[in-house]
C-alpha cells in the first residue's frame, strides 16, 4: 500500500480523510444513481449496477466533483475486504454442485479442467497481447512506454 500513499501525495494538497459516514454517503449515492441507470440498458446489452457505479465514480473523480480524500479511505477498506466478501459466492457453489455430475463424472472433471485452463489462458493471453501492443507503440510509433 506504500505506493498508493505515494500516489495520493502527488495529487498535490494532502487532505485529512473525510469522515467515514460522509464517504459511505458518497458510495451510497453513486450506488443508488447507478441502480437507476442500470435498467435503462437493453436486455441484449446488460450493464450491471456496480459496473456503472465504477464508471460513474471514476468520472466524478476525473472531473474533480469528488476529491480523492472524500472516498479514499472507504475504497481502500472495501478493496481489502474483497476476498472475504467473495466467500458467500464460493459457498454458493453448494447450491449447484450438480452441474458437475449432471452429464456424468467425466464431463464434470473435464469441465473443471477447462475452467482452470480458461483462467490461465485469459490471464496469459491478455498479458502477452498487451506486451505486444506496447512493443508496437514503442518500436513503430516511437512512443515511450516507461512508467514509474
Amino acid at each position: 500500500m506504500a505506493s498508493n500513499q505515494q500516489a495520493s501525495k502527488t495529487e498535490g494538497t494532502v487532505h485529512e480523510p473525510a469522515p467515514i459516514l460522509q464517504q459511505m454517503g458518497i458510495f451510497g449515492c453513486v450506488l443508488f444513481v447507478s441502480s437507476l441507470l442500470s435498467p435503462l440498458f437493453p436486455k441484449s446489452f446488460p450493464v450491471p449496477t456496480p459496473v456503472i457505479g465504477l464508471v460513474l465514480m471514476y468520472v466524478l473523480l476525473a472531473s474533480h466533483i469528488i476529491k480523492l480524500y472524500q472516498v479514499e479511505k472507504m475504497a481502500d477498506f472495501l478493496i481489502s475486504l474483497i476476498a472475504f466478501l467473495f466467500v458467500p459466492s464460493g459457498v454458493q457453489m453448494a447450491n449447484s454442485l450438480n452441474v458437475f455430475t449432471d452429464d456424468g463424472a467425466l464431463t464434470g472433471v473435464m469441465l473443471i479442467v477447462t475452467i482452470i485452463l480458461a483462467t490461465i489462458i485469459l490471464l496469459v493471453v491478455i498479458a502477452y497481447t498487451t506486451a505486444a501492443f506496447m512493443a508496437v507503440s514503442r518500436k513503430v510509433f516511437h512512443k515511450s512506454t516507461d512508467i514509474q
Binding site: F27, L31, P50, G53, V55, M57, A62, L78, L81, F86
Partner: peptide
C-alpha cells in the same frame, strides 16, 4: 455479505483514478 460486493466494485474507481 454478497451485497457488499456492489460498493466494493465501485471502490476500484479509486485505484484507477
Amino acid at each position: 455479505l454478497f451485497w457488499f460486493l456492489n460498493p466494493a466494485t465501485i471502490a476500484f474507481a479509486i485505484p484507477l483514478y
